[in-house]
């Protein structure tokens, strides 16, 4: 909590007044941007090379900049406790931060995000020893031309807070189960114009998602405006016993909360 407040304060300082040196050396400019973001989000903590610990999968060229699929995987034997996804050149760079609970599986996380311009993305893993480990990927997608609020958002607003859960295969007690959660939410980033009213739709985004299984935490996600309309979270959890209930609590930036509960049957039942 303290850390994220600090991050927000520092990011606030990186406003338009921040002088970014003119440079034709793209790599140097990108490294400088990541350095600034690193300081803003993680403070003075050093971030080591994440090779062998964390991988980030994203399409090299995304067809739809408003819906770029991202998969983060981490090594099972490295005691990863949380991950963060940073889209360096987005106006809201910290797309999501996730902490995994006792029945969460840090090995796998899938998200869909918005990408403003050609950018580096960084995925950072935190391990139980408190160390940070990073990996990066360059993604070519450009949605920086003020995407309008479309019919998708209107439909999403009408059903705001509705959730769907899809389990991949049958759940077996003691083994990781992969699941995909879809949350109906327009996730307005405050930069989209309503073409009818000619007004900008106020920012309203999914801020917190808490997922638990039979009372034990699976994961806690803090989101931001870079998550796509109708956020989709792919994750794994470890059911101790089946059947059980997967519960989801969502809170958005307007402080509206939404809850859902899903039965997870035992295999063969």
């Amino acid at each position: 909590m303290r850390k994220s407040c600090l991050a927000l304060m520092v990011l606030g300082l990186l406003g338009p007044a921040t002088a970014i040196a003119q440079s034709t050396d793209d790599d140097a400019a990108r490294a400088e941007r990541w350095h600034e973001l690193q300081q803003a989000i993680f403070g003075d903590r050093t971030i080591g090379d994440g090779t062998g610990i964390i991988t980030l999968d994203a399409p090299q060229r995304a067809l739809d900049a408003a819906l770029v699929p991202i998969t983060i995987t981490t090594a099972a034997d490295r005691n990863v406790t949380g991950v963060a996804l940073v889209i360096d050149d987005n106006p809201g760079p910290l797309a999501a931060r996730v902490r995994f609970g006792p029945v969460g599986d840090p090995g796998f996380l899938a998200l869909r995000v918005r990408v403003n311009q050609y950018t580096l993305m960084h995925a950072v893993a935190e391990t139980s020893d408190g160390q940070l480990h990073e990996t990066a990927k360059f993604v070519k997608a450009a949605g920086g031309c003020s995407a309008p609020v479309g019919e998708n958002e209107a439909a999403s607003l009408a059903e705001i807070g509705r959730m769907k859960l899809r389990l991949q295969g049958e759940a077996v007690a003691g083994a990781p189960v992969e699941a995909q959660l879809m949350i109906r939410h327009p996730n307005f980033n405050g930069m989209q114009m309503d073409q009818l009213t000619r007004l900008y739709t106020p920012m309203r985004f999914v801020q917190v998602v808490d997922i638990s299984f039979d009372g034990a935490e699976v994961l806690h996600l803090e989101g931001d405006i870079s998550l796509s309309t109708d956020p989709v979270i792919g994750f794994r959890f470890l059911p101790g016993a089946l059947p059980g209930k997967l519960k989801v609590m969502v809170r958005d930036s307007d402080n509206a909360t939404y809850e859902a509960s899903f039965d997870v049957p035992a295999s063969g039942s």
């Binding site: 990011l11 406003g15 760079p93 405050g190 106020p202």
Partner: peptide, 18 residues
């Protein structure tokens, strides 16, 4: 990039423009 008026979280900064 237009800065949203009801900025709640503050994780907003104008990215570098290439």
């Amino acid at each position: 990039p237009r800065k949203p008026e009801n900025l709640a979280s503050g994780t907003w900064s104008r990215p570098p423009h290439r």
